[in-house]
Design a protein around this nucleic acid. Structure first.
Lengths: 242, 242, 242, 242
DNA sequence: CATGAATGAGCCTTCATTCAT
DNA sequence: TATGAATGAAGGCTCATTCAT
């Protein structure tokens, strides 16, 4: 019984691999159940035994992506340091998500535009939603810590959620722009990641989250987090993609 | 001859109207040349005389959207005031773009995901690109003015383009999040636009662009810009959508 | 061993119940082995152990229907009275078959159109045929009695089978028309059963089967048969469908 | 323009021919758009330009059948003679419909069971309905004539529509039985048509429609109608099927 | 025996594009 | 120049049946 289940699991992974590749190469429209079946060398019927419909398959692909992001975020917040450093940890997680797993990042984008949720199985729908939620919970937790520790004092009318919204926007938006590519020439030829890091820090400075970037070398913090917290992930990913 | 051209022009607008509507209602897949022909009451051959293929038609739709955004941006920068106020003018333009023309905003997103550019006619491709460019040029101009006037002093290693990149990211990202909707419940029930405005101001504060939001009532500036600069647009759009 | 057979029998009944329901709700095409297996909570393999193929399953469903009709006919002919009254008994049985068991009636029709017999197992095929035969034998018996008793004198060239053929045609045809429904508005809004009863009586009058409907109150006969012969069946069916 | 339309018309006939053949050979389920396309050597797209869906195609097939029956009925009622003779004319039309056009007859049956009307185009749906209606109107007309002429006196509680319902039932039912075949051995080996003719005449005798079959040689009337009214049709059909 | 995963032909339908008129 | 019939590949999905476990 266990072996059968293991085989099922393995096959599901294979199907998801193929589907993800196809989604990346040809977009939502280009992903076709026929071609997935052909590429996996399984029959169409078998594909449909794992996923109730095309949308459900895509939700399955997205779920893995969400899990990857979730794992990175959770780990990013484990960095020991002041609250803003821990937020920076999540920032590093975010940028590593794009750098180490560009495919996952692209999948996140592609699936955010076409609405899949009406047809996907409710099981997968809920898993995805809860994955997203826990990512945000991590951020919210760190912001709360910042307030609790006194490093962050929000002015009247300003909420933790508002702060998070800006961070989230910059994350989503910046990657959208980079991937879309068309306009990147407008931003000179500085390393985009550097620009993004700066933008984040200025944004947090604007909220007065201590220590300000003028008082603290966050580039060093970032570098340390990459090494200490994500060293393994970076290594593993580099091996995988090489 | 001139009359013929006028007729051509008119017909093209009609086709684009119908195509845009279809794109909005049914997405990229739902837009079909057959149905466009049927809805416009022109023959399919005629449609193909104006647009070389489906992708070119979509590019045509997008071009109009880009023009709308361009017009708003240009006008937003005309506000007379200090440099950061003028940037705020563009911010207002940006938010009005989403508020007054949600259809255009949605088109911008939809077309960013499916890759159109490989098949669209090079003519339209270039027009779109140059439209985008002039939007950014407006922003870049205002930032340069800020530096020239002394209101904005960039620290070493920080470029005007970096500043713009953050703004652009927040614009694109925030709308993405709002449209996607799935996660909006995470951000409490404050008016999203207010949150976005705050995020922008904190971001600019972080760069030290004077006057800071703690020294100046930008909410009043925004309100004045809406009235003085965009009063007409708001009125016109409200009439149109009513 | 006997218990096992009993279980088999029970399971077969369950499968047939489910299949019948599905056939009625969704037609021949809508009946699928997958869904039968799912609804019965048995595996597909098990279903195939009872029925060699889809067609055989349908034949099984039909067989039960034929048995119901057979039981009613047999009972209808038990009415004590003159020969034409006994035929009327069968007529009542026929109409009750449609009234009390509309599902069975519909199954009879559905299965008559799609050709099942090529693929069904010969065992079930023969059982169905013999069931049909015994229905007709009942009618033939009553006609013979009519002749023997002197109530019915057939003119030269007219056979008992010819008489039966007309009766059978009217039975099949009238239900076909009623079920099809499309043309029922053409027949005014009298109760269809009344019309059918009249048609039967006029038909038998045409053969001169005594006592003619002008000499005898067959409506009263019908009413008495319903009470005396079929009282129980009516009660039971009403309970079942309520 | 006229030539194109002619070609369209011709193609439509071809498609309908093929579809009818397929329906007859393989039933409702066996008729597939793919195979129709293949057999006609037109592309699937072309088939769909003529018929909006499978059901609409079947409705198209049925429409031709209804027209054939309608033509025969109309002609049958033209026989000059007493009212019951004219009804006999329609009876002959009915039997010729089955004899000369067994395919049409079978189509009528097949399509009566599966419900097509939900999906067929409303145009074809209405045409079919009106075709059916005019057939019945012809019968109703003759019955009214019978009453007007005094040949037919209906007893109280008996309506012309009731009379027609019986005729219609026998027509539909008898053909159902014959086509189904399974039980024909039960009816001895007399010519089925003769049996049907007798059944009709006895039925009308039962209503007392004058002249009764005991007073008038309807077999001769039938024979005369076949020659005088339908001679040509019989000839043509025989040629066609030979 | 019972199971249910795997199969793959087949279903109905849509659509971008072409080209003869 | 405008038309719209024709194309045929491709799409998502279903299902009767088999067979290794």
């Amino acid at each position: 019984m266990t072996r059968k289940q293991r085989e099922m699991r393995q096959r599901e992974e294979l199907i998801l691999d193929v589907a993800a590749r196809m989604l990346l190469d040809s977009g939502y429209v280009g992903l076709s159940m026929d071609r997935v079946a052909e590429a996996t060398e399984y029959s169409k019927g078998t594909i449909y035994q794992h996923f109730t419909c095309k949308e459900d398959l895509i939700a399955g692909v997205l779920l893995r992506t969400i899990e990857v992001r979730g794992r990175l975020f959770a780990r990013g917040a484990t960095y020991r340091g002041r609250s803003r450093e821990r937020l920076t940890g999540i920032g590093v997680a975010d940028s590593l998500f794009y750098q180490l797993y560009p495919d996952h990042a692209r999948i996140e984008q592609l699936t955010k535009v076409e609405s899949i949720w009406d047809k996907a199985s409710s099981e997968r729908r809920e898993k995805c939603h809860s994955g997203d939620s826990s990512c945000m919970a991590v951020v919210q937790g760190v912001i709360r810590d910042g307030i609790a520790s006194g490093d962050l004092e929000l002015q009247e009318g300003v909420t933790p959620d508002g702060l998070m919204f800006g961070l989230w926007s910059m994350s989503v938006g910046s990657r959208m722009i980079i991937v879309h590519g068309a306009l990147m020439d407008k931003f000179g030829d500085t390393d985009p990641q550097l620009i993004i890091d700066q933008a984040y820090q200025h944004y947090l400075d604007g909220y007065g989250w201590r220590p300000l970037s003028t008082e603290w070398d966050y580039r060093q913090t970032i570098s340390r987090i990459r090494d200490e917290v994500f060293g393994e992930d970076i290594l593993r990913a580099e091996v995988q993609y090489a």
